[in-house]
């Protein structure tokens, strides 16, 4: 039964991922990305990492995808309708990708035999112990991540905030 859940989410995620990178319609790509992220959250729940699943839903599906949709809409309106979303000639990329999968998948497959899933007591996979780890063991990384977010915020403001007086092409957005 558990396997069926995993395969369902895995195939959904992969199928949507393929749509994300091949669709010629950019809105369809974003929508597929949303479904893919949600399916990934399902996989995290299946792997008994509910907190990661929730984060995935909130930040990826809820945050990043929405951000992308906003960006796409902004660009689409300003560009007057359709945004070109074509792909380059995929010859080289296909070789690279097949090379990667051809190396990586068999290596992973053979490195880990058919081991059963070890049981997890609900307590240790919970939020409490994760928070404990985050705050006790990874304090510097935690602080660095906060600086990282501050930098991203500064950057977004610097690059996109409009000056009060004048602005370049007057057509678009906000």
């Amino acid at each position: 039964m558990g396997s069926v859940v995993f395969y369902f989410f895995a195939f959904a995620a992969l199928a949507c991922a393929v749509i994300v990178v091949t669709s010629r319609h950019i809105v369809r790509s974003v929508a597929a990305l949303f479904v893919c992220m949600a399916a990934m959250a399902g996989i995290y729940f299946f792997l008994s990492a509910p907190f990661i699943g929730a984060m995935q839903l909130m930040i990826y599906a809820g945050g990043i995808t929405v951000l992308l949709i906003f960006a796409v809409m902004l660009v689409r309106r300003a560009a007057g309708g359709q945004v070109e979303h074509a792909s380059r000639n995929p010859g080289g990329a296909i070789v690279v990708v097949i090379g990667f999968v051809g190396w990586m998948a068999p290596a992973a497959w053979m490195a880990f035999g058919p081991r059963q899933m070890p049981p997890v007591e609900p307590r240790v996979a919970g939020v409490e112990s994760l928070a404990d780890d985050l705050i006790r063991h990874y304090v510097p990384a935690f602080e660095i991540a906060s600086v990282l977010l501050l930098v991203a915020m500064i950057g977004a403001v610097v690059l996109t905030l409009r000056a009060k007086q004048r602005e370049g092409p007057p057509t678009d957005d906000e």
């Binding site: 510097p140 990384a141 660095i144 600086v147 990282l148």
Partner: peptide
């Protein structure tokens, strides 16, 4: 922080801080 890190996670995030500031 890259120079300080002796943990994969910390090291990666320090590098990322340098990179993201660099893009901007």
């Amino acid at each position: 922080c890259v120079a300080r890190s002796r943990d994969l996670i910390t090291l990666f995030f320090s590098l990322e801080l340098v990179s993201i500031s660099g893009y901007l």
